[in-house]
C-alpha cells in the first residue's frame, strides 16, 4: 500500500520527490566530482599561482599578493594583447554574423534546394579549429596558396608572414569562417520565426524589400542577434587558440597575440608561471562576466507579441 501511495504521489506532484534522502546526492555526485576536479581545483591552483613569484632558476617561489597582476596590467605587451584581442573578437563576431545573416536571408529566399543549401552551409561547423586554420593557412600561404596567388595577381602585396594587418585578416577569416555555420543556423531559425503575415502587412503598407528587412525583420531578429553576439564574442575570445596557433602563432611580432595565446606563450613557452597564472585569472573574470550577461539578458529572451 505504501508503494502505491508513493507512486500516486509522484505522478500527481509536478516534481519527483525521492523517498530516499541520500539517493539524490549520489545521483549528482559524479557531476559534482567532475566539476571539482576539472574546474574548481585548477581554478584554485591558478588563483594561488597568480600570487606566487618564482626565482629565475625555478627553485623557490614566494607569495607576492597582487604584484603579478600589477606587473601584467602595466606591461605594454599585455595592453597590446588586449587591443589585439578586442579587435580580433569584434571583427570575428561581426564578420561571422554579417556573412551568416546574408546567407540565411538568401537561403530563405531560395525556392529550390533549400535543404541542400542549408546542409552544405552547416558543414564547416564540424571542422576542428586547427584544421580550419590549416585550411586557410594553405589557401593564403604566400608561396603555395591559390588564393594568395589570386590576390597577388590582383596587385595586392599579400604577405601574412610579415604584414601584421594581413595576418590579422587571415586570422579573422579563418575564425569567422568556422563560426558562420553556427550563426547561420540560428539566423535561419530566427527568420523562420518571423510571422509571414507581418511581412505581407508591411508589403501592403508600401515597404519595399530592403525597407521590410530593416524595419520589420531585423528588429524582430534582435533577440537572436544579441544572443549570437555574446556567443561569438566568447568564441573569439576563448575558443580560437587552435586557429591562432595554426595560422600565425601570434605573429608576425606580437600583432596577432590574443590574450589566450599570450597565457600559453608566457606560461608554456616563456615559463613565466606567475604572470601567466595572473593572466588566466583575468580571463576567468572576463568569462564569468560574459556568462553573467548571457544569463541575465539572453536566457530571459526578449518576447514580442
Amino acid at each position: 500500500m505504501g508503494d502505491a501511495w508513493i507512486a500516486r504521489e509522484i505522478s500527481l506532484s509536478p516534481r519527483v520527490v525521492f523517498p530516499n534522502k541520500i539517493l539524490p546526492y549520489l545521483l549528482v555526485a559524479p557531476q559534482l566530482a567532475i566539476t571539482l576536479v576539472f574546474f574548481y581545483w585548477p581554478a584554485g591552483q591558478a588563483l594561488y599561482q597568480s600570487m606566487l613569484r618564482q626565482d629565475p632558476f625555478g627553485l623557490k617561489s614566494r607569495f607576492v599578493w597582487f604584484a603579478n597582476f600589477r606587473k601584467v596590467l602595466a606591461d605594454p605587451a599585455y595592453l597590446n594583447s588586449i587591443k589585439v584581442t578586442v579587435m580580433f573578437s569584434l571583427a570575428t563576431a561581426i564578420v561571422a554574423m554579417v556573412v551568416a545573416l546574408l546567407l540565411a536571408v538568401m537561403a530563405e529566399k531560395a525556392v529550390r534546394g533549400k535543404g541542400l543549401y542549408r546542409t552544405l552551409l552547416i558543414w564547416p561547423y564540424a571542422v576542428a579549429p586547427a584544421i580550419a586554420g590549416m585550411l586557410w593557412l594553405f589557401l593564403f600561404n604566400p608561396s603555395i596558396g591559390s588564393l594568395a596567388y589570386l590576390l597577388r595577381s590582383l596587385g595586392i602585396a599579400w604577405d601574412p608572414l610579415l604584414n601584421g594587418t594581413h595576418a590579422m585578416i587571415l586570422l579573422v577569416s579563418a575564425a569567422a569562417w568556422k563560426q558562420i555555420s553556427y550563426n547561420f543556423l540560428f539566423f535561419v531559425a530566427g527568420l523562420q520565426a518571423v510571422p509571414k503575415t507581418l511581412i505581407e502587412a508591411a508589403a501592403m503598407d508600401g515597404a519595399g524589400e530592403t525597407k521590410r528587412f530593416w524595419t520589420i525583420i531585423f528588429p524582430l531578429l534582435a533577440p537572436t542577434t544579441f544572443f549570437l553576439l555574446v556567443v561569438n564574442t566568447v568564441y573569439a575570445l576563448f575558443d580560437t587558440f587552435g586557429i591562432v596557433h595554426a595560422v600565425t602563432g601570434g605573429g608576425p611580432g606580437k600583432t596577432t597575440e590574443t590574450l589566450v595565446y599570450k597565457v600559453y606563450n608566457d606560461g608554456f613557452v616563456n615559463l613565466i608561471l606567475g604572470d601567466s597564472a595572473a593572466q588566466s585569472v583575468i580571463l576567468m573574470a572576463i568569462v564569468i562576466a560574459l556568462t553573467a550577461i548571457q544569463f541575465r539578458y539572453v536566457e530571459r529572451k526578449v518576447h514580442y507579441g
Binding site: 503575415t197 505581407e200 502587412a201 508591411a202 501592403m204 503598407d205 508600401g206 515597404a207 534582435a222 514580442y304
Partner: peptide
C-alpha cells in the same frame, strides 16, 4: 503589380500588428 504598389489595405485575421 505587386502588393507594395496596389494601394490596398488589409486587415488580417491575426491582425499582423508589428510587435516591436
Amino acid at each position: 503589380i505587386g502588393p507594395t504598389e496596389r494601394d490596398i489595405a488589409m486587415v488580417f485575421q491575426n491582425y499582423a500588428l508589428y510587435p516591436h
